[in-house]
Nucleic acid binder design. Sequence first.
DNA 1: CCAGTTTGAGACAAAGATGTCTCACATGGG
DNA 2: CCCATGTGAGACATCTTTGTCTCAAACTGG
Lengths: 192, 192
Amino acid sequence: MSHMGYGCLMAVDRDHVLRSAAALLTRKSTSTMDEVAKAAGISRATLHRHFAGRDALVRALEALGIAECEAALDAARLDEGSASEAVRRLVREIEPAAGLLAFLYTENQLFEGEGQNEGWTRLDVRIAALFRRGQASGEFRIDLTPAWLTEALYGLMASGAWAVQEGRVAAKDFTHMIAELLLGGALRREEP
Amino acid sequence: MSHMGYGCLMAVDRDHVLRSAAALLTRKSTSTMDEVAKAAGISRATLHRHFAGRDALVRALEALGIAECEAALDAARLDEGSASEAVRRLVREIEPAAGLLAFLYTENQLFEGEGQNEGWTRLDVRIAALFRRGQASGEFRIDLTPAWLTEALYGLMASGAWAVQEGRVAAKDFTHMIAELLLGGALRREEP
DNA sequence: CCAGTTTGAGACAAAGATGTCTCACATGGG
DNA sequence: CCCATGTGAGACATCTTTGTCTCAAACTGG
């Protein structure tokens, strides 16, 4: 297998390691490199062969989270149909990445240096644009800024991911609970 | 001042240390004991005289957060008036503690052992009871569980605290943004 | 079967944080 | 003024995590 280099097997292993690291760090964000390795079913040495260090691992998780989030935004077709439906599609598409996003959202180490990934800005811009579109069309209220609605979406996804993980809400309700609360709030509607 | 013991000066110093530690750890949850000490304007030795170690400090912050939260619940008089107004009062009263709560909310170390503070349960019960009251009175929709609404309130407060800290939303809008989103959601009302 | 590659296990030192201790200094009451 | 108390600065050992290395074993493709 000398000619394969990084093309084939390494890639799928790397992805598997990344996924299990995401799952573990979502539950316990201070997990040791050794715990991450064991969770992935590999040794610490092999983990180090994939990721130069803890920082590289977290950066790779950041890139993965951003990529999955952007893929979700693409799949949700935010420009089509009503803004409400676009938000529902967005929450549905982003659900599988919610745990990872929740971990990254609280990893404030990622946002303090200078070399912060501009992918976050791209995501913010696209999501805020969706809320702005909803405001322009009269669907959404205008006293809540698009920046705050974007932030609230992140926060609700993180809360939802944790609540599901601790069994406080059912996993199947994740999408509905987040989208409905974000769109409609807790108050009952007089006439839908 | 030998006869004073722990009664007077120690107490206010301890409180001041606790407050600055809360402010610092909210921004950078991995701050060193030395950084915590410097932020409080004291030396690491003195910090250690107040709190036996990092764990003791975090536990003290947990107790402080729970106490402030319970005081806010008391001040908000959750049983009086409409549930919506009670939620607005709750958010307003809890705002000063939002940063500390956001820190504790993501300190999952607090919730994994067996000796987790039952204060959180007390808070959950009281807040969930408020949402349940709103549902029973017909004010709140019933397809969002009280447990999820409680969780969402925590998540929105954390998001709000971070968004304010990073300058993405104005501090003066904190209460309005959180309460209005939680109650009414992003959709515009036809007839208020 | 064989050769090259990858892996796991462990040893090892470096780095960082923590807990403990000592000692000099300041401060405030008597 | 004097003394007791609290404080800051620093030294020190310890512990954990990390990064690096080696080597034997397992595996794979030919």
